[in-house]
Design a protein around this nucleic acid. Structure first.
Length: 301
DNA sequence: ATCCGGTTCC
DNA sequence: GGAACGGGAT
């Protein structure tokens, strides 16, 4: 008898302790899983839950979202943050309809080619929606593997090819078991092997963890430089978008001028929203969410 | 390497 | 007030 593998230990723990998240139910469609993964980029689970339910109730298949306007996607996105994701997700739905007949593609390279789908999301969908054997590496998994296997405090700011390799080597050979293990690694990083206060006594691999064995050395420097929000263009974009989201049609620029006093910064933020496809000008004086109304304004009577 | 939200906790 | 949160695009 050999010792259980790392993946087996974590997978057993996962089956006993996994959070009951709706996108993990067996009959969840690939589209619903893709939507969950995009929403979960940078965003805590508790905030995604209601938005995910509402989004799929309205657009249960990619073709439904593709037929609607970017403006409606931006409105449904609500306050999830990084609203470019809403526009990209709609672009993604359009691409799925045009390239794949409305079905979420199964091949990794086809997924990677979709708007808003990067190396993490493509692998997550391939594994969790289609049961394929791929390493799925977000920062949680990267941290788990760096610590438990390499005994290092943490990885850098981005996922490196070596992180993919190190994670792949941990996966069971059988695809379904590999997908389960990937979900289990993510869960472990999210709720036990956390960045700042790991709950090692609750960890299923505490006995074999190289990082634990080496005294849990702290990262050398600051892992990430702090990200401010107050006073940045991002805050101004948020304020502008809030006004446009509430409006039903074009908003005169005089109303947008009121959300921020610095003319230069406000103009830069608005131009950025236009560049990103979130907002479009209407005539000389007004702006609206992209596609929020007729393409050509009706002439005055 | 930098930009891109918004909420929650300290 | 300020930090934590962390994937994709450029």
């Amino acid at each position: 008898m050999s010792e259980p593998t790392f993946a087996t230990l974590v997978s057993r723990w996962y089956e006993e302790n996994a959070r009951d998240l709706p996108w993990r139910k067996p009959d969840t469609t690939a589209w619903a899983i893709l939507v969950s993964e995009v929403m979960l980029q940078q965003t805590p689970v508790v905030r995604v839950l209601p938005a995910w339910e509402a989004w799929l109730a309205r657009w249960p298949v990619p073709a439904a979202l593709a037929a609607d306007t970017p403006a409606e996607a931006i409105r449904m996105w609500g306050r999830l943050g990084y609203p470019r994701r809403a526009v990209r997700l709609r672009d993604c739905a359009v691409a799925i309809v045009e390239r794949h007949g409305g079905e979420v593609p199964e091949k990794l390279d086809q997924l990677l080619a979709l708007p808003g789908v990067g190396t993490y999301t493509a692998r997550a969908v391939a594994a969790f929606a289609f049961g394929q054997r791929h390493p799925v590496v977000d920062t949680n998994v990267r941290r788990v593997v760096c610590r438990a296997i390499a005994g290092e405090p943490d990885a850098g700011p981005a996922t490196r090819p070596a992180d993919l390799v190190a994670t792949e080597e941990l996966l069971p050979a059988e695809p379904a078991a590999a997908a389960l293990a990937s979900a289990a690694f993510m869960e472990l990083g999210a709720v036990v092997c956390t960045a700042r206060s790991p709950r090692c006594p609750a960890c299923p691999v505490e006995r074999v963890c190289a990082w634990r064995a080496s005294g849990q050395v702290a990262p050398a420097g600051p892992t990430r430089r702090p990200q401010r929000y107050a006073g940045t263009d991002r805050q101004v974009r948020g304020l502008l978008l809030a006004v446009l989201r509430e409006a039903t049609g074009p908003v005169p620029h005089q109303r947008l001028d009121q959300v921020w006093t610095d003319d230069v910064q406000r103009a830069r933020a608005l131009a950025g929203l236009v560049t990103d496809g979130l907002v479009e000008p209407v005539g000389e004086e007004s702006f609206r969410l992209t596609g929020d109304g007729p393409a050509v304004p009706l002439p005055h009577p």
